[in-house]
Design a protein around this nucleic acid. Structure first.
Lengths: 147, 147
DNA sequence: TTCCTAATTGCGAATTATTCTCAACTGCGA
DNA sequence: TCGCAGTTGAGAATAATTCGCAATTAGGAA
């Protein structure tokens, strides 16, 4: 997986995809956005660049890129669903169920799990951008009431 | 964590929760349902038992039990969101992005990860019922077009 | 270069899942 | 038994995502 725009476009062309201006635009936005982007973030970027895509189209392009394995889609809980180009370095998140805090973690955490799944189940996991929920240090000791 | 109805009720009482008939009903349904239950599954069970809860209430009760750590909520992708009482034995799922097939796996897979997260990040992960997406053996070799 | 066609997009409505508001009700402690 | 904070019901509201179909267009063929 690469992060270079030209490489990306080339790879997509090879797969017989039509490189419409809409797709190029979303790709560029994903390439420029170093952070995770929500659909609304992408829409905002589209507007900022003087363009105009329907939400439907944005969803369709993201779905397409996701199916091809070029972008990851992650549900961060409260913070909604975010998308990002898959590329090194992979990272993941620990999200506190109580305070909502987010800890970013490296990919090393998942290497063993990945190998294990491959070896034992003949299954190729796509652990590209995982969210693990739980309680952070501070919240771990409190009593949670359920409300 | 236990699966016994009386133990569960007792633990909830201790926490100062009101044990309404609605909450009892949902708990009983979760206790009886050995499989994962969607909100609709639960609604169906409610009806089957001659009762009648609003969807709102079902959502609220599930949310409450989830916050207390008594039920897990898992997004199985195409198959929607499912809930189940947390109890031994824990299990998880590998879900094929292509064919939708589901492989059930034991909890051992996650022990190392759990320890790692606890040790390195002082974070108590709630990996109760995880869904890992990827490609199963059969689908792994096919070319995916993105459509 | 122009044409052709299947792939893609736009538009607006539909769907699905979930949450909100607020009045009515009720479990349970005093 | 009483009182009230906590809980539920009802139905609307919101948010996120998908659908259907007509119009448009990328990119290969001529």
């Amino acid at each position: 997986m690469t992060h270079s725009r030209d490489e990306l476009l080339k790879q997509l062309r090879v797969r017989g995809a039509r490189l419409t201006i809409q797709r190029r635009l979303v790709l560029d936005i994903l390439l420029d956005g170093n952070d995770h982007l929500s659909v609304q973030d992408i829409q905002a970027q589209v507007t900022q660049r003087g363009a105009d895509l329907t939400e439907t189209t944005v969803y369709r392009i993201l779905q397409w890129l996701k199916n091809l394995g070029f972008v990851s889609q992650t549900d961060l809980g409260q913070r909604g669903v975010v998308y990002e180009l898959i590329g090194s370095p992979r990272h993941h998140h620990l999200i506190c169920l109580n305070c909502g805090g987010v800890i970013e973690v490296g990919d090393g955490l998942f290497e063993e799990l990945r190998d294990h799944v491959r070896r034992d189940y003949d299954f190729e996991p796509r652990i590209d951008h995982m969210a693990i929920f739980g309680l952070c240090q501070d919240c771990g000791n409190q009593n949670i009431s359920g409300e």
